[in-house]
Design a protein around this nucleic acid. Sequence first.
DNA 1: ACTATTTCCTGGATGC
DNA 2: TGCATCCAGGAAATAG
Length: 269
Amino acid sequence: MPELPEVETIARGLAKRVTGDVIESVWLGQKKEPLKSSAAQIASTLEQSRIGHVRRMGKHIVFDLDRRKKESKWIVHLGMTGRLQVCDPQTEIAKHTHAILKLSSGRELRFVDPRRFGRLSVTASAEFDALGIEPLEIDLDRFIFLFHGRKTPIKSALLNQKLLRGVGNIYADESLFRAGIRPRRRAATITRDQLARLHAAVKEVLREAIALGGSSVSDYVNADGEEGFFQLQHRVYAREGEPCLVCKTPIKRVVIAGRSSHYCPKCQK
DNA sequence: ACTATTTCCTGGATGC
DNA sequence: TGCATCCAGGAAATAG
């Protein structure tokens, strides 16, 4: 389940492989869910375009495109199970392949997504500015203001991409643990000091995770097919019933906004 | 303007 | 072993 650190890792890997390459032709599958823009629009925007910068915005991968001086963007959201693979044309086409881009270098860039929660879209250059602020860039004052007056649980607020973009279930739980805040706490009731801890914790967790190549849970691998290692640093996520690594109290799991949420009832208040 | 709930989707895990 | 059921969850849609 790619969140910010995994998407960052994937985007860096893709940038190394496809920057400067030209998309010669595009095949799109019949399933409509993976496409946010129309198939015709995606194909016509991608074909004959040169790939410029490849980068992450929130949980999206953004490819800057240039065709005869006209700029546009190809935006990929991996959802839960989406993968972008760069491979030789002979490579067997994986089940659930929804897009194949033939590149001038002779390789192919393929989008594979069994669960089809991922989305592909294209936009004219200026259009795409995802809502929400990058969590690695936000300053403390703005961070505190995000939660001002919000009655929703802090966990839900962290997952809200219109506030912060890129934080998902794993990193929300891990950040709240490090900040000592229970996931069900109403955002508006959290003190400035606690929010300052959370601000630091979110950045710390994301930076550490990026340094370790993300968390490999389920089948996540980076653009080189390598696993990340941050799952070894998880202190609460998917550790229900196991002892807290700080105080040995069993980790609890509750459901908030439909997501499993893990916390230590003693360390988090 | 917010917030909570439901829906989409398949593979792997679980239960009988 | 086999079949049915459940569960994972990001974000959009829906409802309140």
